[in-house]
């Protein structure tokens, strides 16, 4: 599965949810869905805006964790 490490990057950059949402141009609730790992997909444009706002790489925000059933 893909884990979203948005909260880690937000803590490192010391950015609040509202602040980041405003910079990225999405609603607080949508950013919250993304942060809590409830999102099913992320648009490249959103990822681009997040990387720009947090000054990081996509790999800093997304992490692959092998599922149990995949033998990981």
């Amino acid at each position: 599965m893909i884990q979203v490490n948005l909260d880690v990057m937000m803590a490192r950059r010391k950015k609040s949810l509202g602040e980041l949402a405003k910079e990225v141009g999405i609603t607080n609730s949508n950013l919250s869905i993304l942060k809590n790992g409830k999102a099913k997909a992320i648009r490249f444009s959103t990822l681009n805006a997040l990387c720009k706002a947090l000054d990081c790489q996509p790999g800093d925000l997304l992490e692959y964790i092998p599922d149990d059933e995949e033998g990981g």
Partner: peptide
């Protein structure tokens, strides 16, 4: 629709 709603 649900998938679309949860695409950020």
């Amino acid at each position: 629709k649900e998938e679309n709603d949860l695409t950020i």
